[in-house]
């Protein structure tokens, strides 16, 4: 009996340890297998050529990723420019001024926004944002826009990263020790002064980390972006031009790629690129956030 129990305990420990190692390896396995798949194209062309060329002609074996990279950066930039002020303002409000009732109403809103699947955002974007841009906004600035554009992508992405951004900002603000803000308030500063001079300044690294994390979320977003960006592989010149972010490229071309040499490898290179950048961004910002949590919790 005693031995059976000890045996069960030991086996459970071994199995769990195995799972733990497996899960540690997972990140590595994903990275390495994408890299292996991307190797053929990387052998043929230099990394620089792949990244800096704007020529995308799979039939001729030309794979220049520049339009996709620019598109991704452009769309994500628009998204964070829209999302950051909104999240900061609402995050500060929830942490300082808001009554319990408002927080209680707002929390499920954030939950739901983060729960809504990308494809629903895509549907909503094509039904509302795209026509809005095509008919109302774009005509004021350019001759013609289909509405499927950088701006549409940026707007939809902005809303999609809002919940992540707000919830991390809230975490950052709430990890500030209460004594710091109390000290400022007791010196006669108004709430807003305290926010400006103490809260924002003290949580600056956290805000940066939250921003980086949200940007990397925007980098990887696929379906919604695919549905509203227009997907034309040219470098976009204005907000109202169509664009073709990297994830959309991968998603759109699977299936047909197997018939063309190196096409699959090129797409996998795209996935690998995305993976590496996002992992690095995530690692940096998570480390920062962990540091903040540790500093204030001790």
């Amino acid at each position: 009996m005693k031995y059976i129990r000890a045996f069960k305990d030991k086996s459970a420990r071994q199995i769990m340890l195995g799972i733990a190692f497996f899960s540690l390896l997972l990140l590595l396995v994903i990275g390495v297998s994408l890299l292996l798949k991307a190797l053929p194209i990387m052998k043929e062309k230099s990394l620089w050529a792949l990244l800096s060329s704007g020529n995308w002609k799979p039939f001729k074996g030309e794979f220049g990723f520049l339009p996709y990279i620019i598109s991704t950066l452009y769309v994500s930039l628009i998204a964070i420019i829209i999302a950051l002020p909104l999240s900061l303002l609402s995050g500060i409000y929830l942490c300082t001024y808001a009554s319990k009732t408002i927080s209680r109403i707002f929390e499920p809103v954030i939950d739901l926004l983060s729960g809504i699947p990308p494809v629903i955002y895509g549907v909503w974007g094509t039904l509302t944002i795209v026509p809005l841009i095509a008919n109302k906004i774009a005509p004021r600035y350019v001759e013609f826009s289909s509405g499927f554009s950088v701006l549409a992508g940026g707007l939809v992405l902005a809303i999609m990263i809002l919940p992540l951004l707000i919830s991390i900002l809230l975490e950052v603000f709430r990890s500030l020790p209460k004594e710091i803000t109390d000290a400022s308030l007791s010196l006669g500063a108004t709430k807003w002064q305290t926010v400006k001079k103490v809260m924002l300044r003290k949580s600056f690294p956290g805000i940066i980390a939250a921003t980086v994390l949200s940007v990397s979320r925007a980098f990887g977003e696929t379906i919604a972006v695919l549905m509203v960006c227009g997907n034309i592989p040219i470098i976009p010149h204005s907000l109202f031009d169509a664009c073709y972010p990297l994830p959309a490229l991968i998603a759109n071309n699977y299936g047909e790629m197997l018939s063309m040499p190196n096409y699959e490898s090129a797409l996998m290179f795209g996935a690998f690129l995305l993976f590496i950048i996002i992992v690095i961004f995530n690692a940096i910002s998570r480390l920062t956030l962990n540091q903040i949590e540790k500093r204030f919790s001790l």
Binding site: A20, S23, L24, L26, L27, I30, S33, L34, K37, P118, L213, S216, R217, F219, G220, E221, T222, P247, I250, A251, Y254, L267, M268, A271, L274, F275, I278, V279, F281, N282, A283, R286, L287, N290
Partner: peptide, 22 residues
């Protein structure tokens, strides 16, 4: 392990799709 799951959490679904496909 926690850290690696923080990062896996950030890996976009298209990458999981591509990895699954590979």
């Amino acid at each position: 392990i926690r850290f690696s799951f923080d990062i896996l959490f950030g890996v976009p679904s298209i990458v999981y799709g591509a990895f699954g496909f590979a």
